[in-house]
């Protein structure tokens, strides 16, 4: 039996479909059409059927679901074992997984068991005329791009960065087939036990990887108090506050806000960098953002090389002016 179809893993976190899965349905649709194959979404959750009904609107041809109480919490072994069995059974040609923490824990274990290739953190996807998927990912702070292929083994696997691709517009009238699979008793076994889950954030708005707008501050913020300027603008725009490593290391803001190589990799629609010089470690974490606005007093700061719009000036004057102007615009 030949390998067929494009699979997208629809990750569920806290009982909700994560946005990256829906983003992948958009890309998966494109690849499936190019290959002349079906697009299949895969959901593992105690509430999979209801989530599948929700996912239908985003374009899959089929949804493959495993609805079982034992899938309420992600366990590497359980998820790997059941996905391994499903892949062997259905033989997909392509399998895409969101590059979330869970996706990056699951996908290498699964690819290794399947003895197939996995490209991490893709930001561009294409197919060549020999049906080989071209998995393109940034390296070295986005200064270099690498296109990987997996020519000899199937499925061709890759993780894809959240927020790079847009969620397709839902069509609520759309329906598709749901294929039900069950979890075998031996698949419930896990080598790791989850004892407790503690949310890191008291304020759930600091979800940087999924944020649409991020207002970040760096060394130029000078003082922890000044982060309130960023928070004010973030509240007004509906965005989140980010920070460079310098600001975190200075103790001005909690590490959960850190963007960059040792923090979070983000890809918002708008990234506003305030008083951030643009060390490569920071650029690695944000250079794929759609629109970058930089505010810095040093016209030579490297952040201006990656910015679409750069304001050279004193951020303590420009930020309040920006907030004020935006507030005025929102009133009219």
């Amino acid at each position: 039996m030949k390998h067929q179809n494009v699979w997208v893993f629809l990750e569920v976190l806290h009982s909700k479909l994560r946005p990256v899965g829906l983003e992948l349905l958009g890309q998966g649709r494109r690849l499936a059409d190019q290959l002349g194959e079906k697009l299949v979404g895969v959901i593992l959750d105690p509430n999979a059927e209801a989530l599948a009904t929700e996912a239908m609107a985003y374009g899959p041809d089929e949804l493959l679901i495993v609805q079982d109480e034992h899938l309420a919490q992600y366990h590497t072994d359980t998820f790997t074992t059941v996905l391994y069995r499903l892949v062997r059974q259905y033989r997909p040609e392509v399998f895409m997984i969101g590059a979330t923490d869970i996706g990056r824990d699951l996908s290498p274990r699964l690819a290794c068991r399947l003895k197939t290739g996995l490209t991490a953190d893709c930001t561009e996807l294409d197919v060549d005329d020999k049906r080989i998927v071209l998995w393109t990912r940034p390296a070295l702070g986005g200064n270099l791009m690498a296109t990987n292929i997996c020519p000899n083994t199937k499925p061709q696997m890759g993780t894809v960065r959240p927020n790079v691709f847009r969620i397709p517009s839902p069509d609520p009238s759309r329906t598709c087939t749901i294929l039900h699979e069950c979890l075998y008793p031996e698949e419930q076994h896990s080598l790791t036990a989850v004892e407790k889950i503690i949310p890191i954030l008291t304020n759930s708005t600091v979800n940087l990887t999924e944020a649409e707008i991020i207002i970040s501050g760096g060394r130029g913020m000078k003082d922890p108090e000044n982060f309130s300027l960023l928070q004010e603008l973030a509240d007004l725009t509906g965005g989140c506050v980010g920070a460079s490593r310098a600001a975190v290391d200075a103790g001005w803001i909690s590490p959960v806000h850190q963007v960059g190589q040792t923090g979070k990799t983000v890809c918002p629609r708008i990234y506003i960098a305030c008083g951030i010089s643009g060390a490569i470690q920071h650029l690695i974490g944000m250079s794929t953002s759609d629109t970058i606005i930089a505010i810095n007093s040093d016209p030579k700061a490297p952040i201006f090389h990656v910015a679409d719009y750069g304001i050279v000036g004193d951020l303590f004057q420009i930020l309040p002016a920006l907030t004020q102007a935006l507030r005025a615009r929102k009133r009219t």
């Binding site: 690819a111 003895k115 296109t147 990987n148």
Partner: peptide, 16 residues
Amino acid sequence: PTKVRKTFIPVHEKQT
């Protein structure tokens, strides 16, 4: 199983 097909310097079409 994976091979690097190519590496390239991205063209920044955007102008600052």
